[in-house]
Amino acid sequence: MTGDHSVGALGPLVGYHLRRASSAFAADFAAAVEGTGMRQVLVGILAVVAGSPGINQGAVGRVLGIKRANMVSLINELVDAGLLDRAVDPGDRRAFSLSTTDAGGATLADCLARIEAHERKMLAGFTDAERATLLDLLGRIERRETTAA
């Protein structure tokens, strides 16, 4: 399938190839955002908050599939870096609403530009239709996973 060496029984296994593709994407992603201090999960949180200012921490975690216990330290990291503002949610005094700071918006814009270049590079051999098909197929796997839980 890939390279000159047979992977034997792994060849027809979709999961094997998804893992390999994911690993290649993750390594190139890390190189693309190197020097920003950001990781995939942090970019994801910033993107969700920027898209829904005032969203509460729990909702961000649900959207991204991040466990509640992990969200606290991730949000603290972004607040401490001056990228997110956290305030008591006026609708639920037990929750925090989040918004990006100016620095958070600038960091997100920089990371998104780097990520778009990374994706163009990784998918250079794909047509727009193939890219759309890939996103559709991956989305079908994701939706199946969330409905099976």
Rank of each mutant, 00 (worst) to 15 (best):
L18F: 15
A9W: 15
L83Y: 09
G15P: 09
F126G: 02
A21L: 10
D85P: 00
I75L: 00
G61Y: 11
G44C: 10
V7A: 07
V72S: 11
A9S: 12
G37L: 05
H118V: 01
R86A: 15
A9Y: 15
T101E: 00
T133D: 10
D4Y: 01
T100D: 02
H17V: 06
S6M: 10
M71V: 08
A148P: 08
I55E: 01
A132N: 14
A27F: 09
E119C: 06
A81P: 02
A69P: 02
A26W: 03
A129H: 03
M71D: 06
F25S: 00
G35K: 01
S22Q: 11
D89M: 00
A69M: 09
E142C: 06
I66K: 04
A21F: 08
T146E: 14
G15E: 07
R144F: 15
L42H: 11
A27T: 11
Y16K: 05
G82L: 01
L135G: 15
G51R: 04
T127D: 08
D89H: 07
D92C: 06
L18T: 13
G44S: 14
A124L: 09
G105L: 05
T127Y: 01
H118D: 15
A132F: 09
S6N: 11
L46A: 10
R93T: 07
T101Y: 01
L18V: 15
D128V: 14
H17L: 11
Q40L: 08
G11F: 05
F126E: 04
N70D: 11
R93N: 05
P53D: 01
A117D: 13
D80L: 04
R131L: 07
E34F: 02
S22E: 15
V41P: 01
R131N: 03
L18S: 08
L42I: 00
G65K: 03
A132E: 15
G51P: 03
G3F: 09
Q57L: 13
A117S: 14
A32C: 06
L138S: 07
S99R: 09
F29E: 06
L134S: 10
L98G: 06
A69R: 13
M1R: 15
T36V: 03
K67G: 08
F126T: 02
E77S: 12
R94A: 10
A149L: 11
M122D: 03
Y16P: 07
A31I: 00
T101R: 00
R68M: 01
V7K: 12
M122W: 09
